[in-house]
């Protein structure tokens, strides 16, 4: 974040502002520059500007109690958005609960009935891998997939400043998306 100061901010106000932003432990760089020059520094990312402060703006920042995000206070701007998202989530859960309540079948017996459902949706991709591939290979493919997922940051060393690196990254993304798409289709039972 960068705070931009107009050139006419008094020295004492400037000193207080620097103390204030340091106490907030934010990555704030007060710049005593004209607005145009400061915007050139910020470049094409104006969201990094915390506030364009003149003398009155500085006083407001000095006395503010709520942290800012891109010049917007957490309260009420972001808080209300989080509350709305929570409300929508509750509505979604209420609808699912009302129209598709989870059932409770008969008490389990020692041997499940023949028509009992097989694995749940999130394990179907695993089931397909283990049962469609030869027995010895399927398990290792699953193990290697999870190992690769864990170690992805250490395996992906593509240098995106080169064409070769960009191609490597593209291939990785295509493989990742294809794997996910296959997993979803297996989970939904479209493929089996």
């Amino acid at each position: 974040m960068i705070i931009l100061l107009e050139p006419n901010v008094p020295a004492e106000t400037h000193r207080k502002l620097v103390e204030r932003v340091r106490s907030l432990d934010l990555d704030v760089v007060p710049l005593e520059l004209g607005a145009r020059r400061a915007l050139e520094i910020v470049g094409s990312d104006p969201s990094r500007v915390l506030g364009l402060a003149d003398a009155d703006g500085v006083l407001e920042i000095l006395t503010r109690r709520t942290p800012l995000v891109s010049g917007e206070p957490i309260w009420p701007h972001f808080t209300i958005r989080v509350l709305i998202a929570t409300l929508l989530l509750i509505v979604l859960l209420a609808l699912l609960t009302a129209f598709f309540p989870p059932g409770l079948g008969d008490r389990a017996t020692a041997t499940p009935p023949a028509d009992a459902p097989s694995v749940e949706w999130y394990l179907r991709p695993l089931e397909v891998l283990l049962h469609k591939l030869p027995a010895a290979i399927g398990g290792w493919v699953v193990l290697l997939f999870w190992l690769g997922l864990f170690l992805l940051p250490f395996l992906d060393r593509a240098d995106t400043s080169t064409a070769r690196g960009q191609l490597q990254l593209l291939i990785l993304r295509v493989v990742g998306l294809a794997t996910l798409a296959a997993g979803i289709l297996f989970a939904l039972g479209v493929l089996s």
Binding site: D106, R107, A108, T109, P112, P117, V119, G139
Partner: peptide, 20 residues
Amino acid sequence: WDEAGHAATLAGLNLLEEVP
């Protein structure tokens, strides 16, 4: 502890056992 959950769990455990 219903039939469907019991069967799904057994099937899941069988899959898990196949992972080396």
